[in-house]
Design a protein around this nucleic acid. Structure first.
Lengths: 144, 144
DNA sequence: CTTGAACCTCTAGCTGCTAGAGACTTCAGG
DNA sequence: CCTGAAGTCTCTAGCAGCTAGAGGTTCAAG
């Protein structure tokens, strides 16, 4: 049996985070010691490792909740997990594309920085003027 | 003179967001009409466009606050703006690298999905086992 | 003059934690 | 057996960066 601190060390998750996961129902309420301290077994460690790894892959907690409920019923179809993973892949690819565009613009800004005074600083100027944008990706709503 | 709604439309920023920026001191308090409604001039629009564009480039509000205070003193050196932009570039590059690794792992997970039942679903299995990781990038703290 | 959209302030909520207060439990060393 | 430190408990509040809602006022068009 592991105390919450040992569990956290073993899974690479901080103690308050474990309590938070319990609070939002991602982890079941564990046994308690005579002195009311949480005691965890192997299955809790596995579940927490699953959550941690999923978080590292960028899955939001709600997706992890779904994945966990899937893995709690192991005789069902794998298709739902596949869908979640594919959604996540699409989201990751979109983020990469967006960041790559931002990187290009930042690089352009920096190379144009004359190292002079603010008055002729391209960084400030570029940030103030939207029309310099390489690609004008706008967020669809509320734009005239 | 623009009302807050017109300003928001012109800059591509939602009305509550403008009030939020004012609240946290990114935008100065504007004039008011006789009926206590906010009225903005051209400089407010420019400042808001600057903020919006910077946000799109991923600058955190605190960095934007610094950039704005720089641009308020145009006879100073451009070096500080350069540093902020380079920091942001480094952060963007780090995010891209991380996401690219995640993408590879998600793709691997998905191709391994047997489309069978959860019991032999690689997605669930891979997520539960950290040792499958292509690169074991851990967040430095609290890891045994 | 009336309607209805836009505005006002204020508070609370979102995600995914993190930090702190103030009290209790556990364990190792003496 | 006792002490003291480290770990744990619950609870509340805070972070970014907004967003949504309640309940009320103002403005512009018809």
């Amino acid at each position: 049996m592991l105390t919450i601190g040992k569990l956290g060390d073993a899974a690479g998750v901080k103690v308050p985070t474990i309590r938070y996961y319990e609070q939002i129902g991602l982890l079941p309420e564990p046994e308690r010691s005579a002195g009311n301290q949480r005691l965890y077994g192997k299955s809790a460690l596995e579940r927490l490792a699953f959550i941690r790894h999923s978080r590292e892959l960028g899955f939001p907690l709600e997706a992890i909740r779904d994945l966990l409920s899937l893995s709690d019923r192991p005789d069902q179809s794998c298709a739902a997990a596949d869908i979640i993973a594919k959604d996540q892949l699409a989201a990751v690819e979109a983020r990469i594309a967006r960041l790559t565009a931002l990187k290009a613009e930042l690089e352009r800004m920096i190379t144009q920085c004359a190292q002079g005074t603010i008055a002729d600083c391209r960084i400030i100027e570029v940030l103030g003027d939207h029309s310099h944008c390489a690609q004008d990706r706008r967020t669809s709503e509320a734009v005239g």
